[in-house]
Design a protein around this nucleic acid. Structure first.
Length: 626
DNA sequence: CTAGGGTTAG
């Protein structure tokens, strides 16, 4: 009777302490729980100590000596406790007195009577190999699993094997494990689907997704994010829509892929729709969702809405701040970007990272703030301990070159302590496009043709520099080079979202749009009105050696002008015309937008591949820096 | 226990 009672009390106490450990949210609370265990004589319980170790891993406050000390107090650790210790050691950078997970495993095998090894212990070892990318150790363990009875049907073991090979970049081996599995669950399918999406192989991902017998929220989300991360925003949104149609519930993670797809499209109506869904479910409070929304609004041209979301957030981390800074930079609001950076560094605990500095440096560059840019560049290593990499040097080359100092930019590219990448030479070539330095452009382009032989834009840029300088022989040489390498231009296009959310895309000189005739007429009328106000076409924007009248004809066929005319015809009076372009806006179109913004009394926002241009009352927010 | 997340220069 009293034994039963004592037993009951013991069980109750154990349950109480178990929940105390589970709810510990800091290392000091965990310490208190441990002290309690000690006082009550329960520090020898494998069950409770194993929970303690697992909580230690969850809290990421890993102290291996502490873990080992706690473990050592248990006289007869069972296999659960051993496994927890292995996990602790696998999660940390192990050092004395902690041992390597495999060593612990052999100690465990020696300490315990020889039972068949537990699958979850083995999974913990495999997981360790997977996180530490130890393919050699992992495949040895894999070989062992083959001889252990039941492991070929054990989902934990098999799924961890898939993960191991995926993490080590061995997709074929992961697929082999998957194909040979006797039983598969949704996790096996999804692991492999995600592996394909991360390798950019959406075809295989689609195939697997189609074949998988069950599709849950995570699997659907994997497809949505897969499309989004592979720059296929329309398909991402379509998948998101199908997912909701199929009645699958969504969570914070599911909406992020859709939000990021809207950011890529720059389509405001779609964006508002997805935002509404996110808010309906109350996901807006989540840091990741919030950061994605900030990015989405910034990339859709609604920088003030991005700012509102940013300031309404409760938690902001380095992603949130970097996104806001980069967003402001792309809209040419350098001072605001710097203000956000200062808020972050002076009033919060959030530490800037390398991406944050890329944002700050581009902000300076896009506003011509050379001295401020130099100071931030110096401070990043001296104050924040971040060593500038090639991307940061690219920003500096851009900063100097854009401001008209191509010689110093070239000098920096030549003397920088890390190997210059395509970004560095590309920034230099871009500077030459603005300031016309054919001899420097040639140096930059030669490096680029080696580093990025297939990047068509570099050839076009060089040929443009030569064309502006009237060096038609060199222009034709560049064109020959392009042809010789079998490169063809990505068609330039501009697109615009209509009132109903449908996206209309325009190509240069293209007459396939249903309203094509009206658009052409409206454009001609507009150009005539602008000419009365002193507009002269900038013929040098056409880089072909053709007659002047042909140049005029080509200029008026530019896709952004077609989109502008479509906007003037369809956007309500007083509404902002928002155009997205896949390449940089040309000088003539830039001028036309400026003039049209005042003559038509319209705000026009153009997102090109680099940044935003806000045209209002005849001026552009870029201040001529683009 | 094992699957899905946001920022990057020309």
């Amino acid at each position: 009777m009293s034994a039963t009672f004592r037993h009951c009390r013991h069980r109750e106490l154990e349950a109480l302490l178990f929940s105390a450990i589970s709810s510990a949210s800091s290392i000091s609370q965990l310490n208190q729980a441990h002290t309690l265990l000690y006082r009550l004589g329960l520090h020898q319980s494998s069950y409770l100590v194993a929970k303690l170790l697992r909580r230690l891993v969850d809290l990421r406050s890993l102290s291996n000596s502490y873990a080992f000390a706690v473990f050592s107090q248990v006289p007869a650790p069972n296999s659960f406790l051993w496994t927890a210790l292995i996990r602790t050691s696998a999660a940390a950078a192990f050092g004395p007195p902690c041992r390597h997970p495999l060593v612990l495993y052999s100690l465990m095998r020696r300490a315990l009577p020889p039972p068949p090894p537990l699958s979850f212990t083995f999974s913990a070892l495999l997981k360790f190999c997977s996180t530490s990318r130890s393919i050699a150790m992992g495949s040895q363990l894999h070989a062992q699993t083959i001889f252990i009875g039941g492991f070929n049907e054990d989902l934990f073991v098999q799924n961890t094997l898939i993960d191991l090979y995926v993490q080590c970049g061995q997709l074929d081996l992961a697929r082999k494990v998957f194909d040979e599995m006797l039983v598969r669950d949704i996790i096996s399918w999804t692991s492999l689907i995600v592996a394909y999406t991360r390798h950019g192989d959406m075809g295989s991902a689609e195939e697997l997704f189609g074949e998988s017998p069950v599709k849950d929220m995570v699997a659907w989300t994997a497809m949505v994010t897969g499309y989004s991360q592979n720059a296929r925003p329309n398909e991402a949104l379509a998948a998101f829509e199908r997912m909701r149609m199929a009645g699958v519930t969504i969570d914070e993670v599911s909406v992020v892929g859709a939000i990021s797809a809207c950011a890529q499209l720059g389509a405001v109506k779609r964006a508002e729709g997805v935002r509404q869904i996110a808010e309906e479910y109350g996901f807006g409070k989540n840091v990741v969702v919030g950061s994605a929304l900030v990015d989405m609004y910034a990339k859709c041209g609604l920088i003030d809405e991005a700012r509102r979301v940013f300031y309404a957030m409760d938690d902001r981390n380095v992603y949130t701040y970097s996104t806001m800074i980069t967003g402001l930079a792309s809209h040419g609001k350098a001072l605001d970007a710097i203000k956000v950076f200062d808020e972050m560094t002076m009033r919060t605990e959030v530490k800037p990272n390398r991406v944050t500095f890329i944002g700050v440096l581009t902000a300076c560059s896009h506003a011509g703030m050379v001295e401020a840019g130099r100071q931030y560049f110096t401070s990043m290593s001296e104050v924040y301990g971040i060593t500038p990499d090639a991307d940061h040097y690219a920003c500096m080359v851009d900063l100097l070159g854009r401001a008209g100092n191509a010689e110093e930019a070239l000098e920096l590219a030549r003397t920088m302590p890390v190997e210059p990448n395509g970004g560095v030479w590309g920034a230099l070539l871009g500077a030459c496009r603005i300031h016309g330095k054919p001899h420097i452009a040639k140096i930059a382009a030669e490096k680029l043709f080696e580093l990025e032989p297939d990047a068509i834009g570099n050839y076009v840029l060089l040929s443009n520099v030569y064309a502006s300088a009237g060096m038609w022989n060199e222009v034709s040489n560049v064109r020959k080079l392009m042809r010789g390498r079998g490169l063809r231009k990505n068609p330039a296009s501009s697109w615009m979202e209509a009132k109903d959310g449908v996206v209309h895309e325009f190509f240069a000189g293209d007459g396939s749009h249903p309203m094509s005739r009206e658009i052409k007429a409206a454009l001609e009328e507009l150009i005539d009105r602008l000419k009365c106000r002193g507009y002269t076409p900038i013929l040098s924007s056409i880089v072909y050696d053709v007659s002047e009248s042909e140049k005029r004809r080509l200029l008026n066929g530019h896709s952004e002008k077609l989109a502008l005319a479509f906007g003037l015809l369809t956007v309500d009076t007083g509404g902002t015309i928002r155009i997205v372009k896949n390449i940089r806006i040309c000088e003539d179109c830039h001028l036309v937008m400026c003039l049209a913004s005042s003559s038509e009394n319209r705000e026009i926002v153009v997102r090109d591949n680099m940044r935003f241009h806000h045209f209002k009352d005849g001026v552009c927010s870029c201040g001529g820096f683009w």
